[in-house]
Design a protein around this nucleic acid. Structure first.
Length: 667
RNA sequence: GGGCGCGUAGCUCAAUUGGAUAGAGCACCGGAUUUCUAAUCCGGUGGUUGCAGGUUCAAGUCCUGCCGCGCCUACCA
C-alpha cells in the first residue's frame, strides 16, 4: 500500500518535472521520510534539481505543489525550507484500505530462486555461528516467499573433506573403534556432541606430533574410494551428524528442500564436465614453473592484470602471465581438485550450465510432512526438479568472499555473464565470543585474548557455544518466567510457550544486527527478554490479542466487519485534526510492511525487518498504555481504537512470521 | 606486503545508502498500575561520529592521507 503510493508519487513528480522542463536532464526523484510525523509521510529533497533547472529548490517545490494537481491517495503537499516538498497521505482512505487488508496487484518476476544456507561441515555439532547463517538464510527465504517468489532451499554438505576425515581419524586411530562400534555410537541422542569433543582431540593429536598428520592424508585418500571401509565409516558419521543438524535447525523451524553432497559432485563427475569447459574457455591455465608448477590455476578474484587496464584489443594469442601471488590453485599438481573447483562445478549446475544432474532420494521428512531430498548415486525415479534456476543467493560468511568471487569470475570467464550477474554472495560477519563469555564457559584465556573485544569461535579447538545448548538454556530461562507467571497452566503448555519465547529471542537476536557487524556473543544479552528483543514484540501481540479476548470480541469477525462496513468518514474523525498524529503513526507504520520487505530483499539485509517489528511493538506498547480501550465510553471511538489494534497486531504477526517467530497464546 | 571490512553515548548497536535537531536497547537516576498482563510505559544523565585534510547547497555516510582493530591472503575446506 505504502510502497505502491510512494512509487506512484515519485512517478508523478518525475513526469511533472519532465513536462515542465522538457529540455533539462534530470536526476531521479528520491523519496524519504520526514524526521517527524507532523511534517508528513513522504519528503522529497529538491536540492539535486536546483542546478540542472537553474532554479532555487524552494521555487521548484512551490511549482510542483501548485501545478501537479491531485494524486489519488495523497491529501496535501507542503513546501518546507530549505528545499523540501513534504507530502501527506490521505489518512482515512489509507486506513480503510489497511483495514480491508487490500494489496495492490504486484507482478512477480518469473524464474526460480535458489538460496543456499547453513552448509555446516558434517563432523561436529552446530554452533552459534552456524545459527546466524541458518537464521539469516531462512529469513531471507521467508522474505522472498512473502513476495510470492518461488524458492528452493539448499544446504550444501561437504562430506568428503578434511573435517570429516579428521573425525574418522579420531574414531579409528585415537579411539580404535570398529565400524560396528561407531555405528552404535551414531545412534546416541547427541552424537554430534561426541564428535565435537573428538574433533578437538584430533586437532591436539596432530599438534602433538606432526607425523600424525599422515593419518589424515591416508584417510582423506581412502574416503575418495567409495568402496572402502573408511569411506563407509565417513558416510556413517557424516550422515548421522547431518541428521542431527537437521533436527537442530528444525527446532528453529528451519527446513531445506535439497542437500547436495560433495561426494556426488565427485562421483557423478561434475568436475570433469566443468574442467573440460574451463580449459576450453581458457579460464584455467596450466602452470609450468614456480611454486605452483604442475597445477591448473586461475587468477585470484579482485586482482587485476596490468595489461588488461590498457586498451589491448585482442591479445588472446598470448595468455598473459599471472603473477605467483595472484594465482589461485584449482587443480593440484597431483591431479586432485580443490574446494573452489568443486564449487565452480556446483554453481554451473545451479544455473543449469553443466549438462549433468544429481540423482535424488528422500532423506528427511519433517513433522509437517515436508520432504527433504539428498543427492545420491542411485536415485529415485520420481523427484522434484532442482537446479537450473534464474537467480542464486549464497549465505556464506565474509571470510569466504574471495572464494565466492573466484567462482563468479569463473562463470564470467565461461561467458555466462547473465548467471554471474544473478549470483549474490549473501555475505555476513561471524559470531564471536566476548572474553567474559569465554571465561564463563571455562576456557582459560591468554592476556592478549582478555584484552580483545571478541574472540573467534573455533570448531577445531572445540571453542564455542553449541546451538542446542544455547536453545536449551533459552528454553529453561523462559520456562522459569512462564512457570512463575502462569502456574495454572499444565507443564506441557508452559513448555510450549517457553519454547516459542526462546526461539523468538534467539531469532530476533541474530537478526537485529546488520550483516557486516561481528556479533560479540554474550549470554546476558542473548538471554535477555526485555527491551529490543523478540519477546518484547511477542508480548505486544499477546496484549493486543488479550484486549479482544477480554471483551469477548471475535477478532476475525471484527476485522471482517470493519473491512466491510467502515467508511472513510468514520476514520477521518480520529485520524485528522491536531491530536491525531499519535494514532496515525500506528497506521503509517502498519502500512509499511511490504515496503520494508522490499528493502530487505533489495539490500539483502534482514535487519530492517527486525527494526520494523520493534518499531511496531514500541508504538503499540505506548499506545496501549495511554489509551484504555475497553473502558472507552464513546462507542465510535472505541471501535476506532479496536480497529487500530487489529491492524497493528496483524502487521506485527506478519512481520514476526517472516522472521520465523511465532507468538504464544499468552506470556 | 596486497585484498575486504570495521571504528558512532559507559556497554551493545541503528541511522531510509549524501539530506531536516545523529537515534534505540542495556546500565544508572527519578517516576507510573484498585484499569485491556509491569517481559510494560513516562522522564532524566550521557556525543568534537578514531585523527587531519578535501569534494558538496548538504558528510557519521563519498575521496585522499594517517592511527587502531578484525578477517582473508595454503597444492586446507
Amino acid at each position: 500500500m505504502y510502497r505502491d503510493l510512494e512509487h506512484r508519487l515519485a512517478q508523478r513528480i518525475a513526469e511533472f518535472l519532465r513536462s515542465r522542463y522538457p529540455d533539462a536532464s534530470l536526476p531521479s526523484v528520491v523519496i524519504e521520510q520526514p524526521p517527524k510525523v507532523e511534517l508528513g509521510d513522504f519528503a522529497i529533497p529538491l536540492f539535486p534539481f536546483a542546478k540542472p533547472l537553474r532554479t532555487a529548490p524552494l521555487k521548484i517545490a512551490e511549482a510542483i505543489c501548485a501545478g501537479i494537481g491531485s494524486i489519488e491517495g495523497i491529501a496535501e503537499m507542503q513546501v518546507a525550507p530549505p528545499g523540501y516538498l513534504n507530502v501527506k497521505i490521505d489518512r482515512a482512505s489509507m486506513a480503510v484500505a489497511l483495514s480491508a487488508d487490500q494489496k495492490p496487484p504486484a507482478e512477480v518476476p518469473a524464474g526460480k530462486i535458489l538460496v543456499e544456507h547453513t552448509s555446516i561441515n558434517p563432523n561436529k555439532a552446530a554452533h552459534i555461528g552456524h545459527l546466524r547463517n541458518a537464521i539469516l538464510g531462512d529469513t531471507f527465504v521467508r522474505l522472498l516467499r512473502y513476495e510470492d517468489r518461488e524458492v528452493d532451499v539448499q544446504n550444501y554438505i561437504d562430506n568428503t573433506g578434511v573435517q570429516v576425515a579428521d573425525v574418522v581419524v579420531g574414531f579409528t586411530q585415537i579411539e580404535k573403534k570398529s565400524r560396528a562400534e561407531i555405528e552404535a555410537l551414531t545412534r546416541q541422542p547427541r552424537f554430534d556432541y561426541y564428535c565435537w569433543d573428538l574433533y578437538a582431540r584430533v586437532s591436539q593429536w596432530y599438534a602433538q606430533d606432526k607425523n600424525n598428520l599422515q593419518a589424515r592424508r591416508e584417510t582423506l585418500h581412502a574416503i575418495e574410494d567409495a568402496s572402502s571401509d573408511t569411506a563407509a565409516i565417513a558416510e556413517l558419521i557424516s550422515t548421522a551428524v547431518l541428521r542431527r543438524h537437521l533436527e537442530t535447525m528444525d527446532r528453529l523451524d528451519i527446513e531445506y528442500d535439497f542437500l547436495p553432497r560433495e561426494s556426488e559432485i565427485l562421483h557423478l563427475n561434475f568436475w570433469d564436465a566443468a574442467f573440460a569447459k574451463l580449459k576450453e574457455a581458457g579460464v584455467l591455465t596450466y602452470e609450468n614453473e614456480g611454486k605452483n608448477k604442475g597445477c591448473w590455476i586461475m587468477r585470484r578474484a579482485g586482482t587485476t592484470s596490468k595489461a588488461s587496464t590498457t586498451e589491448n584489443a585482442e591479445d588472446t594469442e598470448e595468455p598473459e602471465k599471472i603473477s605467483e601471488e595472484d594465482q589461485k590453485v584449482i587443480v593440484r599438481s597431483n591431479g586432485t581438485v580443490g574446494y573452489v573447483g568443486k564449487d565452480i562445478a556446483y554453481h554451473m549446475w545451479k544455473f543449469g550450465l553443466l549438462g549433468r544432474d544429481f540423482n535424488y532420494r528422500k532423506f528427511y521428512r519433517y513433522p509437517n510432512q515436508h520432504e527433504c531430498w539428498i543427492s545420491a548415486m542411485q536415485g529415485e525415479k520420481d523427484h522434484p526438479h532442482f537446479g537450473n534456476v534464474a537467480e542464486i543467493y549464497n549465505v556464506i560468511d565474509a571470510r569466504q568472499s574471495e572464494a565466492q568471487n573466484t567462482v563468479i569470475e569463473a562463470l564470467r570467464g565461461l561467458g555466462h555473464n547473465e548467471a554471474a550477474d544473478h549470483y549474490t554472495h549473501f555475505s555476513y560477519e561471524m559470531v564471536a565470543l566476548t572474553p567474559r563469555c569465554a571465561a564463563e564457559l571455562g576456557y582459560t584465556l591468554s592476556e592478549e585474548d582478555k584484552a580483545r573485544s571478541y574472540i573467534e569461535v573455533s570448531g577445531r579447538k572445540g571453542f564455542g557455544v553449541k546451538a542446542d545448548d544455547l536453545l536449551d538454556r533459552l528454553i529453561a530461562s523462559a520456562k522459569n518466567e512462564v512457570d512463575s507467571r502462569h502456574p495454572q497452566l499444565t507443564d506441557a503448555e508452559r513448555l510450549s510457550i517457553a519454547t516459542q519465547i526462546a526461539i523468538g529471542a534467539l531469532r530476533y537476536f541474530m537478526l537485529k544486527f546488520t550483516k557486516q557487524s561481528v556479533i560479540a556473543f554474550d549470554f546476558k544479552e542473548a538471554l535477555s527478554f526485555e527491551g529490543e528483543t523478540g519477546p518484547y514484540a511477542q508480548y505486544a501481540v499477546v496484549r493486543a490479542t488479550s484486549i479482544f479476548k477480554k471483551a469477548e470480541i471475535d477478532l476475525e469477525s471484527f476485522c471482517r466487519d470493519v473491512a466491510r462496513n467502515v467508511s472513510a468518514e468514520s476514520f477521518t474523525k480520529f485520524l485528522a485534526g491536531n491530536n491525531a498524529d499519535e494514532f496515525w503513526e500506528l497506521w503509517q507504520a502498519s502500512a509499511k510492511t511490504s515496503y520494508i520487505v522490499d528493502q530487505c530483499i533489495a539490500t539483502t539485509e534482514p535487519a530492517y525487518l527486525a527494526k520494523h517489528a520493534f518499531q511496531l511493538a514500541q508504538l503499540f506498547s505506548a499506545f496501549y498504555h495511554r489509551h484504555p480501550i475497553l473502558s472507552e465510553p464513546d462507542e465510535k471511538r472505541k471501535r476506532f481504537l479496536l480497529a487500530t489494534v487489529a491492524v497493528v497486531r496483524r502487521e506485527m504477526i506478519r512481520t514476526l512470521a517472516v522472521m520465523g517467530i511465532t507468538v504464544p497464546p499468552l506470556m
